Amino acid sequence: MAASATKQSLLLLASLLVLIGITTGSFYDSFDITWGAGRANIFESGQLLTCTLDKISGSGFQSKKEYLFGKIDMKIKLVAGNSAGTVTAYYLSSKGEKWDEIDFEFLGNVTGQPYVLHTNVFTGGKGDREMQFYLWFDPTADFHTYTVLWNPLNIIFLVDGIPIRVFKNNEANGVAYPKNQPMKIYSSLWEADDWATQGGRVKIDWTNAPFSASYKSFNDVDCCSRTSIWNWVTCNANSNSWMWTTLNSNQLGQMKWVQDDFMIYNYCTDFKRFPQGLPTECNHN
């Protein structure tokens, strides 16, 4: 009797582990390492991916799938110590001259100074919609979840489930919105000391190389995706409530807190940059 109960417990545990594996996904199944000559690697049976940067090269990877709307999570731990001059990019992008793109970029800094989280949205090859933030935690000490929720109504950028920015669909006011071009997920760690840290004034210190960023717990369960350009983009019919999600009053309060206390640049308040008037969407948030 005891042996039977033990066997049942072990089978249940095995089933739970399988479910956990399905939920978190495997980097082997979800991504291709695309450049870096061995500087990006997958570990822990597909559950951890690292990108490194040295004086010779950075590294990067991209998703096997393309997405047209989705709620996509990735846990990232950024380059520790003196990361000045490094950029860890994590974004969705289509191809072609009139590409669409949704950006998280993490701009490194000297030891003790905060990372800058740089966000942007491109439609039809046009960006210039930068918002930048400091984070309310040390993003190098542990993994934190960075989420893009992209649906026909809005694009929501979230950090650990807290919304930091929304780009609404303002097509009714003549603003282009990304809704027709499927995008892949890309990430890379690369050198950008000509502009990344304090406008390029602080250069990369190669004595700290190799630099490393880590990724885990990728989740694209809630998405519309395809594995080939020859397929239609399909959605998960059982979990598509995200398709019409907008921020509720509590989330709007959270976003106000982030933007009041941690936002360091907003293109929608940069009158010097737009002397002829702010972009249309800035007046329809």
Results as ranks from 00 to 15, higher is better:
W244T: 14
W230P: 01
K179Q: 14
D142L: 04
S4L: 12
D29V: 07
W206P: 09
L189S: 09
F271W: 11
D32E: 13
N180R: 07
G127R: 14
I185V: 14
N109W: 01
L252N: 08
V110L: 13
A2M: 10
A141Y: 06
V79N: 07
G21H: 04
K7V: 08
L189E: 10
L92T: 12
W35E: 13
G174I: 14
T234L: 06
V202C: 06
F274A: 07
S228R: 01
R165A: 00
W99C: 07
Y115G: 08
H118E: 00
V159K: 06
N151H: 15
D261H: 11
D260E: 04
G112D: 02
D193L: 13
S225E: 05
S59E: 05
S249I: 13
K77M: 14
L252W: 05
S83V: 08
N170I: 05
R39E: 12
F271C: 04
F211V: 09
N154F: 01
C223A: 15
G36R: 01
V202Q: 10
C223H: 02
S63Q: 03
T111D: 08
Q276G: 14
W244Q: 14
L10A: 04
Q181S: 04
K168F: 12
Q276M: 14
I56L: 08
F218L: 09
S9K: 09
V166R: 05
Q254T: 05
S214M: 06
Q47K: 15
E130N: 02
I56H: 11
A14G: 10
C282L: 10
T111L: 00
I72P: 02
Y28Q: 11
S228C: 00
A84Y: 01
G38Y: 05
Y90P: 10
S30W: 01
R226D: 08
F61T: 04
T23K: 09
Y146L: 07
